[in-house]
Amino acid sequence: MLTPEQIAAAKARLDKARGVPPAGAGSGTAGQPAGRAARSAAGVPPQPPADTGRGPHAKPPTREPISITTWLLVAMILAVIWYLAKPANEQERIDKHVDKAIALMADCKLDAARAEVAAMRAAKATDLQLKKANEAISGAVKNCEMRRQRAKAWTDLTAALESALQSGAVERADARLSAFTRKWGPDDATRDWDKRIDIRKAERLLDEADACLKKSDSTCLETRLVAAEKLQRAEVADRIRSLREALSRLLESTVLEQKSPPALGNEPPRSVPQREVPRETPRETPRPAPPVISTAPQVSQAAAQARKILSDAERELNQGNYKSAMDKAEICATMIDVGNRECLGLKQRAERLNREMLRCVASGADWINDRCQ
């Protein structure tokens, strides 16, 4: 059992925890009126109670007034917050949708542009704004369809051009590319292909010029060099320069050979037989006939060159290089063997096939085996 002292101590701790003052704490309060009366009797003025800040009459601490600078700073901050968080103008937002739809149609993104128009209707756009967006879409649909068709045609043409170059049909590739450019217009891709074809044409002409140089045919060499120079390709400028120098040397050697006197035959000049005349008529002294110089070797040489060029022209014609065949046939008929009927006939045939091929390609069909299909 607990002793009375332990019980009193436990009760005191419990009262302290509850906030109940101890039993002897009220004596001071009760004694205050007596002490105040004694001080009044002695003539001592009463002292104000000490302000502990805990009583019912305690005053809050005083604060300094807010300055005008602080109010202005707060007002500026609120203005910035309102400007950033204010709701956007509805008409400006719809105008942005219109501009976005037009920009999407410029890239042929039709579905995205129509989605923007649907968003404009949901935002209650005006009829003028909807009309502007719809007109932009309607005007761009045709252009987008043409761009799609051009891309498809270019894909098909690229394969045909590669095949033509690999087979050596440079003229056919040039004709098809020219027809495509006339129909759809040029761009960077067509210009690159035009350069490739010109380079191949120049290289082929220079290869033919090398063959002419081996045969010491200055006319053939000059014709090929002029045709190659007209293409104006810097990639073959060195070959053209070297062949020009070779042509100059060939011409110099030809001139020197022409200046040397030709060797005549050892046969004595044949005399003209004398006619029988009457004895009374004096006979004239017979004059020696001039030597007869035969041109049979030159004629046979020209015929051989004509047959060689005609064979080359037929090969170019069978490969579809109609322009090259026309050039070779023209050289054969005008420079090698003037008026050769075979050369003229081949030239006319090549011209006819070239015209038919151009018409066929321009119509969008394919030219295969000298026929439009």
Rank of each mutant, 00 (worst) to 15 (best):
A302E: 09
Q298L: 15
G19M: 10
V141M: 12
T158L: 09
A189V: 11
K109F: 04
I197R: 07
R352K: 14
D174T: 12
C372V: 07
S218K: 03
K109W: 03
M326D: 01
P49W: 01
L243E: 10
D192S: 13
K201S: 06
W367A: 01
M1F: 03
I137G: 07
A118V: 09
R150G: 03
Y322N: 02
L256S: 13
A303V: 09
A122S: 13
E252K: 15
Q301V: 05
A88L: 10
A34P: 06
S248I: 03
I7F: 07
R147E: 09
I199D: 14
A306V: 02
A306Q: 09
K195V: 15
S311P: 01
L157V: 08
N354P: 00
E342G: 06
R315V: 11
K109V: 04
S311H: 08
P269T: 06
S248L: 04
L72S: 11
R182H: 07
L256K: 15
E5N: 08
A115V: 03
A122M: 09
C220W: 03
A34R: 15
I68G: 05
N318C: 02
A75G: 13
I240S: 10
K16W: 11
R224F: 10
R13P: 00
L251D: 13
K16L: 13
A140C: 09
T334L: 06
A209W: 01
I137E: 01
A125I: 02
S253N: 15
A125M: 05
R200F: 01
C108M: 06
K308W: 07
D99W: 06
T52P: 02
E245D: 12
A106F: 01
S27D: 09
D327F: 02
G320T: 00
E145C: 04
G320N: 00
R283L: 11
P33V: 10
L221A: 14
P269E: 08
D187A: 13
T155G: 14
V44Q: 08
N318V: 15
G28P: 00
M105N: 04
W193I: 08
I68Y: 07
L128S: 14
R244K: 12
A313L: 00
A133F: 05
C108T: 04
K131P: 02
V74Q: 06
S242L: 13
P282Y: 06
A228P: 05
I77E: 05
R191V: 10
T155L: 12
K132N: 07
P269W: 00
R341F: 00
D312I: 00
D111M: 07
I368P: 02
C332Q: 00
P60M: 09
A153V: 03
K259Y: 03
S363C: 01
E203P: 06
L231A: 11
N134W: 07
A306I: 02
A202T: 09
S167I: 04
A289F: 08
R341Q: 12
R270I: 10
T219G: 14
T62F: 08
L205V: 08
R93P: 00
R13G: 02
E342V: 05
G139D: 13
P297H: 05
Y322W: 03
S67T: 15
G26F: 13
R121C: 04
G265W: 01
R54V: 05
A234F: 11
D207E: 08
L264Y: 13
V292P: 04
R371E: 14
A101R: 02
G168L: 07
G185Q: 11
A25K: 04
D337L: 14
G345M: 10
K323M: 09
P21R: 15
